[in-house]
Design a protein around this nucleic acid. Structure first.
Lengths: 344, 344
DNA sequence: TTGAAAGCGCTAACAC
DNA sequence: GTGTTAGCGCTTTCAA
């Protein structure tokens, strides 16, 4: 243990003393503000070097009423959507001199609340949130202040019901509409929908699917729209099984979430079915699997989403007056046409 | 914007005033220390409720010289090893009332240094680190204090050369030895090795492979050991191609890193080769792909690694005297025998 | 250009 | 059991 190491122990007073100036002058030289003579600045800088001094950000935070820290509250960092998101947020934050606190909710409301409370307590300067509150649940009154405090929040991917919070998301409904149209153009009329419940994201995607069917005068059969809890392991497999057991004549499978593909493929494999020979498959979110299996995919610009959310957050941090206008930003997805969908 | 919302503006003085007690008493009641009469406690609690008060962790931090925050410095959160690691660290940290700052280095030394400096500045209580410093580079003298300061550090996965830092890792050499033994027992003698350079992790795995070959009197052919920079996209594909182009009679492929499998499979597919019909395949790290393709795999207990590292870190935080003894913890991997390796 | 001093919000030693 | 006060390390106003 090197006492002088991590240098946590050195203060601006130590620097000032060694440089033979006052604390104020040392502070000015280090912090690069106010007026300092060249001579004084040099002496201070030498002392900084020698003592390995770094300002204590906690003290700065208390004094300046900011922490240069953002919080990202997400479902689960193991999910590829979330980790791409966090990657880009952290990158963008770092470029601006900010750090990122990471908070997993495991899609549990209780944890979302707990995390919000602690990050408020830690006085983060802003929050990026993917809320677990289902689209048609209202946030209880006594918790609303957590979503409407004086720390700016930008929501990502999911709308938060009844709160005026900025949102960055994909063009879910349109992209889904186009995907369904594509399947219909190939002759599919019975398209099994596999998704997870309850979030605005999935709602919007289902809406696009319905619009496409209605437009082509295809009746909507709710028995071939199946869903599961978010983050349920094996959801893909289970739902595929459920769908195929019904013997309902579906000719295509349309997966609305990124975690489902593996399970779907596994279940199909188990039943000796091949894509696209026996069934067509179209999925959201481009992952390694999708490339390997040539799956036609709707690819979300996840990192772009993270970047935009972070920039908007900085905007709200720097310009508090902008917090009054709620902004919704929709980013375009990309339709990647591979070989998993065929004419019937 | 609800002025009383996020309640960042309320201080213990506000609470004290409303409760009609002194700041000290309010503090005692809120912080649950010292002696407070039931009556006073109740008044304070009511005030806390009413004002939505939460203590300012920054002020607490300055006063208590701790932040209840850990930093995790890793290569890239998009990599599944790292995100599983972070998941478990965050979970363990949260259970103990700590938060986690996430820092991606993108495997660049410069960013590792920058992050270390800022997290020191932010006075995190401890650091979990997967250093990018290659196994045989020494950390430059003027930066050593970053690895040897008064903030405890636990290293994960990779040794840091020349520094006395605790380490939690897998039983790399042994597991690799057993894997090679297994391939040899199936009759393989020319086993192509695909890995990334420079980290102790891979070194140890190669060492295990060598030991197994030597033990079976199989000459070691360095031309069938190929590597690439870490995090190079398409490394798997490129290296497989390189290996197969040599026409060197290899009958098995052994992948030492988790990011490689997809590329390997893609390249094999492109050449019309099938596993295990045309070549056997064995890989480190169990991912969805490995299950789908029935790939025999060495699975690391990643979350366990994160948990152990975090616990050790807490230990070092609470018992500074323990920082003197360096501890290396090796966790057992699991050998998952699937169908990608066959007798020749 | 520089220095002294106040104060950010909290805890805890000390006095009552 | 309660209140007063000093001080954590910093920035910044004010005066010199």
């Amino acid at each position: 243990m090197n006492r002088n190491g991590g240098n946590s122990s050195m203060t601006i007073d130590d620097v000032a003393r060694l440089a033979g100036v006052s604390r104020a002058t040392a502070g000015r030289a280090v912090g690069n503000y106010g007026n300092v003579s060249e001579k004084a600045r040099e002496k201070v800088m030498r002392a900084v070097e020698e003592l390995n001094y770094r300002p204590n950000a906690i003290a700065q935070g208390l004094r300046n009423q900011n922490t240069k820290t953002l919080a990202v509250i997400i479902g689960n960092i193991k999910n590829s959507y979330y980790n791409s998101l966090v990657f880009s947020i952290e990158d963008e934050a770092m470029k601006n001199g900010y750090n990122v606190l990471i908070c997993n909710t495991n899609e549990q409301e209780r944890k979302e609340i707990e995390h919000l409370q602690t990050v408020y307590s830690k006085r983060v300067d802003g929050i990026i949130l993917t809320s677990v509150y289902p689209v048609d649940h209202l946030i209880p009154d006594h918790l609303r202040h957590l979503y409407d405090g004086d720390v700016p929040i930008v929501s990502v991917d999911r709308k938060i019901n009844g709160m005026d919070i900025d949102l960055v998301q994909s063009d879910n409904e349109d992209a889904s509409y186009r995907a369904a149209k594509y399947l219909i153009s190939l002759g599919h009329r019975r398209i099994g929908l596999i998704g997870t419940k309850d979030y605005s994201t999935v709602r919007e995607r289902i809406r696009g699917y319905r619009r496409a069917l209605v437009e082509s005068n295809i009746p909507i059969d709710y028995s071939i729209i199946v869903d599961a809890e978010y983050a349920q392991p094996n959801a893909g497999r289970m739902l595929t099984s459920k769908l195929l057991d019904q013997n309902n004549g579906i000719t295509a499978l349309y997966a609305l979430n990124n975690t489902l593909c593996g399970g779907i493929l596994l279940e199909l494999k188990n039943r000796g079915m091949q894509v696209p020979r026996d069934i067509s498959l179209l999925a959201w979110d481009d992952e390694e699997l999708n490339q390997l299996f040539d799956i036609t995919t709707i690819s979300q610009p996840v990192e772009e989403t993270g970047r935009m959310a972070t920039r908007r957050l900085f905007d709200l941090i720097e310009h508090p007056e902008k917090r009054k206008e709620k902004q919704i930003l929709q980013l375009k997805t990309e339709f990647i046409c591979r070989k998993s969908c065929v004419k019937i």
